[in-house]
Design a protein around this nucleic acid. Sequence first.
DNA 1: CGGAATCCAAGATGATACTG
DNA 2: CAGTATCATCTTGGATTCCG
Lengths: 131, 131
Amino acid sequence: MEDRTSSTPGHSQVTAPRGDLFSPECPTRRLLDRIGTKWVAMIVKTLAETGELRYADLKRRTPGVSAKMLTQTLRGLEDDHLVARRVEPSVPPAVHYSLTPLGHSLDEPLAALREWAETHMPEIDGLSRTG
Amino acid sequence: MEDRTSSTPGHSQVTAPRGDLFSPECPTRRLLDRIGTKWVAMIVKTLAETGELRYADLKRRTPGVSAKMLTQTLRGLEDDHLVARRVEPSVPPAVHYSLTPLGHSLDEPLAALREWAETHMPEIDGLSRTG
DNA sequence: CGGAATCCAAGATGATACTG
DNA sequence: CAGTATCATCTTGGATTCCG
């Protein structure tokens, strides 16, 4: 077990790197550092839609994700209190993940962004080809 | 001069990598790949607020950005028709950047995200420390 | 002024193997 | 089942240098 300040999507600038350039003035940047990681948007959306999922189920609904990345991403979200982890002490153990109220509140602006993407990204791709 | 499929924030999955896993089904992912890059959110916000800026001005208003990243980011945004580039043929040349209507439309959901970040990120940071 | 080209360090991600 | 540990790789971003 080592520290979580290296490659974890969790907080890394929080403890002041050397001269917090725009960290305190730009929480948006830090937020995007998190939701911008490859799997967060997909996971948040999935949890928002399904309510609660087990690790394996969540993995199955996130095509292409590796166990490592899924765990790492969930840890980061947990760390930010956007996702809740519930363990059923059975054998074998069953671990359930769901959005916290804060997580749900994030899903709102995120949903707006999704809608923008679905509306305009095809348009953008079209423009890229036709000039 | 080489292709723009390597490190450019522009389209890289558009030309089908090998088996577009969720590219077509997830424009959100591609959008986040762009706005999630370190400087996009800041640049878009700045342009949204100021209207139009010259390269050097934009650089000055984006603390910490290198010329390389600024150019690269602007190229990507230009490529997506989110930013317009206007050149005044003077000596030395003056290049102006501004948001396109599409860019402004993106700024709306982005602003919502910013507001969420400014509202909740401090709360999150507080929770991280106090448990 | 507004870039482009190159080199390099860091971080993110994936594959694989192992564990309680 | 639900992870953890480790290694290899690919991508990102920054510093530097040079140019029209």
